[in-house]
Amino acid sequence: MAKITKADVEYVAGLAQLTLDEATKERLVGEMGDILGYMDKLNELDTTGIEPTMHVLEMTNVFREDEVTPSLPRDAALMNAPKTDGEYFLVPRILDTE
């Protein structure tokens, strides 16, 4: 059974915002099929009644107090940005109205 089809790869790439060329898609159909096929091993195990691990540490309620701490100077915030106008991070015009 082919575990993964090209359509699956394309759907997942869409969710992950990746563009893949044809060769890479083909390659991933094979690789992901193999790996996911291997992962199906887990179905051998009966996990009824087993709680999923949320955290290996049994910690709860780690908080900070509601106190304002200094923010970054704007120059430092924008320092690594590919495109800015000195105030905003600039991205290609967003057409979709939110």
Binding site: F63, R64, V68, S71, L72, R74, A77, E87
Partner: peptide
Amino acid sequence: GCSTKFDAPANTNVCPICLGMPGVLPVIN
């Protein structure tokens, strides 16, 4: 710990955490 003040100049109430910079972690208020 950035301020929630409404009308601050753009990108002045920001820090590595709320900018999602690499290596940061959230701690809940």
